[in-house]
């Protein structure tokens, strides 16, 4: 049985840089391929409303008549289902995770 088995590790880490970052000043390094905010290339969108119908959280609202594509960012779970079903492939998930918000608003494209 050893007394204070961790002493080596603790000593070693005394002389290393911290692994944490000072968050708001230094943004988090995001891995490529991370599922972040949903982005739409609105010029290519044909307003077929498939993404609206398939969205598991009803975050999307696509208006066929007025050609409006709207998203509730707070409802979107970045699952990527709409990206898969989009016939025009004009939806994509960016690596960007967005900034905090204080209001519940629909974003319109």
């Amino acid at each position: 049985m050893a007394f204070f088995q961790m002493k080596k590790m603790i000593l070693a880490w005394t002389f290393r840089k911290p692994v944490t970052t000072s968050y708001p000043f230094e943004p988090r390094k995001i891995c490529p391929g991370s599922r972040g905010r949903l982005d739409v290339k609105i010029s290519e969108c044909i307003f077929c409303t498939i993404c609206d119908k398939r969205c598991p959280t009803q975050a999307l609202d696509v208006d066929k008549v007025n050609k409006k594509w709207r998203i509730d960012r707070l409802r979107c779970i970045s699952c990527g289902y709409c990206v898969e079903v989009c016939p025009k492939k004009c939806l994509l998930l960016t690596g960007d995770h967005g900034i905090p918000t204080v209001t519940k608003e629909m974003e319109t494209f």
């Binding site: 995001i30 891995c31 490529p32 391929g33 991370s34 599922r35 779970i77 970045s78 699952c79 990527g80 998930l93």
Partner: peptide
Amino acid sequence: IEATTGGRVIFG
């Protein structure tokens, strides 16, 4: 996990 699936805890 994030690099291979895109999510940190919800792999999806």
